[in-house]
Amino acid sequence: MLTNLYFVRHAHSIYTPEELKRPLSKKGLSDIEKINQQLIKESIDYVISGPYLRAVQTVEGVAKSIEKEVIMENAFKERQLSSGPVEDFQLAITKVWQEPSFCWEGGESNVVAQKRGVESTLKVLERYEGKNIVIGTHGNIMVLIMNYFDNNYGFDFWNELNMPDIYKLSFDKSELKEVNRIWSKD
Score class of each variant (00 low, 15 high):
residue 2 L to I: 11
residue 5 L to T: 14
residue 6 Y to M: 09
residue 6 Y to S: 11
residue 8 V to T: 10
residue 9 R to I: 10
residue 9 R to Y: 07
residue 9 R to V: 14
residue 9 R to M: 08
residue 10 H to R: 05
residue 14 I to N: 07
residue 14 I to V: 15
residue 16 T to I: 15
residue 16 T to V: 15
residue 18 E to I: 13
residue 18 E to A: 14
residue 20 L to V: 10
residue 20 L to I: 11
residue 20 L to T: 10
residue 21 K to L: 12
residue 21 K to Y: 12
residue 22 R to S: 10
residue 23 P to Y: 11
residue 28 G to W: 07
residue 35 I to S: 08
residue 40 I to A: 11
residue 42 E to V: 13
residue 45 D to Q: 11
residue 48 I to Q: 07
residue 53 L to E: 06
residue 53 L to D: 00
residue 55 A to T: 08
residue 56 V to Q: 05
residue 56 V to I: 15
residue 58 T to I: 03
residue 58 T to D: 07
residue 59 V to Y: 01
residue 59 V to I: 14
residue 60 E to S: 07
residue 60 E to K: 11
residue 61 G to K: 05
residue 64 K to E: 09
residue 65 S to G: 06
residue 65 S to W: 00
residue 65 S to V: 01
residue 67 E to K: 05
residue 68 K to L: 01
residue 69 E to V: 01
residue 70 V to D: 01
residue 70 V to I: 04
residue 72 M to Y: 07
residue 74 N to R: 13
residue 74 N to Y: 14
residue 75 A to C: 09
residue 75 A to T: 06
residue 76 F to W: 13
residue 76 F to G: 05
residue 78 E to V: 06
residue 80 Q to W: 10
residue 81 L to P: 05
residue 82 S to T: 03
residue 82 S to V: 00
residue 84 G to P: 01
residue 86 V to G: 04
residue 90 Q to G: 01
residue 91 L to C: 00
residue 92 A to P: 03
residue 93 I to S: 02
residue 95 K to D: 01
residue 95 K to R: 14
residue 96 V to E: 04
residue 98 Q to W: 01
residue 99 E to K: 03
residue 100 P to L: 04
residue 101 S to I: 02
residue 102 F to D: 00
residue 102 F to V: 01
residue 105 E to I: 07
residue 106 G to V: 05
residue 107 G to D: 09
residue 107 G to H: 08
residue 108 E to R: 09
residue 110 N to G: 04
residue 111 V to H: 07
residue 111 V to T: 04
residue 111 V to L: 06
residue 113 A to Y: 12
residue 113 A to N: 06
residue 114 Q to E: 09
residue 114 Q to K: 11
residue 115 K to H: 08
residue 118 V to N: 00
residue 122 L to K: 11
residue 124 V to G: 00
residue 125 L to P: 02
residue 125 L to H: 03
residue 126 E to K: 07
residue 127 R to G: 00
residue 130 G to P: 00
residue 130 G to Q: 02
residue 131 K to Q: 03
residue 131 K to I: 00
residue 132 N to G: 04
residue 133 I to V: 15
residue 133 I to L: 06
residue 135 I to F: 07
residue 135 I to P: 02
residue 140 N to Q: 03
residue 140 N to P: 00
residue 141 I to P: 02
residue 141 I to Q: 08
residue 143 V to A: 00
residue 144 L to A: 08
residue 144 L to E: 04
residue 146 M to P: 03
residue 146 M to L: 14
residue 147 N to L: 02
residue 147 N to V: 02
residue 147 N to F: 03
residue 153 Y to E: 06
residue 154 G to V: 02
residue 156 D to V: 01
residue 159 N to Q: 10
residue 160 E to T: 13
residue 161 L to H: 04
residue 161 L to V: 07
residue 162 N to A: 10
residue 163 M to R: 06
residue 164 P to K: 15
residue 164 P to N: 14
residue 165 D to Y: 03
residue 166 I to R: 13
residue 168 K to G: 13
residue 169 L to G: 12
residue 172 D to M: 12
residue 172 D to C: 10
residue 172 D to L: 13
residue 173 K to Q: 15
residue 174 S to I: 13
residue 176 L to A: 12
residue 176 L to V: 11
residue 179 V to L: 13
residue 180 N to Y: 11
residue 180 N to R: 15
residue 180 N to E: 14
residue 181 R to P: 07
residue 185 K to M: 08
residue 185 K to L: 10
residue 186 D to A: 09
residue 186 D to I: 09
